[in-house]
Amino acid sequence: MLHHIPALLSPDLLKTPAEMGHGDEIVIGDANFPAHAMGRRVHRMDGISATEAAKAILHLLPLDSFVEANAHVMQVVGDATASPPIFAEFQALVDTADNPAPIARLERFAFYERAQKAFAVVQTGEFRLYGNLILTKGVIGAAP
């Protein structure tokens, strides 16, 4: 048993960010996201919201500070400027992470293309539409 590890993270899911390198990406997908069609590694978090999953993962995962955007959401189809409430929730979580930055938006098929290249996909039980987030792993700085 370990302490300071979010209880939502299974041993297999803990292993994934540990294996990821700088610049690798992890997708947090909603219940409608085609996770198995996209990802080589898929972790299921049925019954867990995308925001709960993101909070647990961001507790451990440093975000990349060498890219313009280290987190991405999928644009609303037909209205690229729309902001479903979950976008603000994702941004609030990213704002508390290492190397916070504004979340970028990707057109639906560009999001899917990027997700296909991701290191892993976490399939959540999120039923809110557009509850998908891609996070880019950064590096842990040298100890002082």
Rank of each mutant, 00 (worst) to 15 (best):
F87E: 12
G23S: 03
A56C: 02
I48H: 08
I28Q: 03
E52R: 08
H22G: 03
H72Y: 15
T16R: 13
E19Q: 15
E89D: 13
V73R: 06
E19N: 13
A71Q: 07
M20I: 11
D24G: 06
E68P: 00
G29S: 07
L60M: 08
V67Q: 06
P17N: 06
T81L: 14
G21S: 12
M45P: 04
F33A: 04
A50Y: 07
A54C: 02
L14E: 12
R40W: 10
T81N: 14
E89A: 12
V73A: 00
E68V: 05
H59R: 06
L63T: 04
E68D: 11
E52P: 00
H72V: 12
I26Q: 06
P62L: 10
A18C: 13
L14P: 03
M20C: 11
A69P: 00
G47W: 01
N70S: 09
A35K: 01
H43T: 08
D24L: 06
M20F: 10
V67I: 05
D30I: 05
A37V: 08
S65Q: 05
A88E: 15
G21H: 09
D64W: 00
G29N: 11
S83N: 14
F33G: 01
D64R: 00
T51C: 06
M38H: 04
R40M: 10
A80W: 03
F87P: 09
P84Y: 11
G29W: 04
K55D: 14
N32S: 11
I86L: 14
S83I: 12
H72P: 00
L61N: 00
F87D: 10
